[in-house]
Simulated scan of single mutants.
Amino acid sequence: MPDTALSRPEASAAVHHLGWSLILTTLRTVVSVRNVHDALTVASIATEAAGPDAGAHLSVDLRAHRVELALQTAGRAVVTARDAQIAAAVTAALTAAGFTTGSGGAPRVTQLLEIAIDTMDAAAIRPFWKAVLGYVDEGGTTDPGGGLADPTGQGPTFWFQHMDEPREQRNRIHFDISVPHDEAERRIRSALAAGGTLVSDKAAPAFWILADAQGNEICVCTWQGRD
């Protein structure tokens, strides 16, 4: 059924060979273009290929030299069989027009950045972050400790990681960078070569914790190891 939610392995397997990646709860791909005119063409082709329900699934981020496409079923925050169908249709239409879905030729692969705040009481600080960022409740959540999202879709999501006791010796804010599962190890090697350290790989391949030379932390995340 088109509205059937796919598991993470199912979603990744359905589109990976098409140049799409599962990042968090979205299917994403990037299309390299030469100019804004080509970018507009890619956006038009993708929208047409997505069909009459494109608005309930497809998001387009258009830049002068790249177009990023994302698919997720609106209102459910999940990837469904329909999203995978649209990915296949979009890739076929773009390929026929001479464009390629995937990171080939792009400065980097598709990815998503999140910012996590460690707290013992998310409800006490969440209203501040919501107000100062101009964000909204992620996915319409009513959870007082739930995530916050940029209503324009431009900024990173903020979420709150519960702590049972204060940990003054560690950072209170860290970054999560979610990348395609076949990009994670290359990204980690690059970060380590640039002076970083591996803090923990106990949760790999769901995430690895890295730190810079001063102890500031970031998690490199994939969809794997979460089901």
Rank of each mutant, 00 (worst) to 15 (best):
P52R: 01
R34M: 09
V31N: 07
H65N: 09
A81H: 11
A81E: 14
T29V: 08
D61A: 11
D38N: 06
L24Q: 07
V60A: 04
A43K: 03
R34C: 13
A56L: 05
N35C: 13
D61R: 07
P52S: 10
S32T: 14
T26H: 08
V36M: 12
R76E: 15
R76V: 15
S32M: 07
V78L: 09
G75N: 11
T26Y: 03
T80P: 04
A49N: 10
T80Y: 00
R66S: 10
V30R: 11
A50F: 01
S44R: 03
S44A: 07
S32V: 14
A54T: 13
D53Y: 07
T25Y: 10
A39M: 11
S32D: 03
V79I: 11
G75S: 08
A70Q: 04
S59C: 02
S32A: 14
E68N: 05
A39D: 09
A49K: 04
N35V: 15
V42S: 08
T41C: 04
A39S: 15
V67T: 15
A39V: 12
L71K: 03
T29E: 03
T41D: 01
A49R: 01
A43M: 06
E68I: 14
Q72S: 15
L40R: 09
V31C: 05
E68L: 08
A81S: 13
R63K: 14
G75Q: 08
A74V: 14
A81T: 13
V78M: 05
H37P: 06
V67L: 12
E68K: 02
V60D: 04
R63W: 11
T41N: 00
R28K: 13
V36N: 03
A50T: 02
R66P: 00
R76F: 12
V33S: 06
E68M: 07
R34G: 15
L69Q: 05
V78E: 10
A50Q: 03
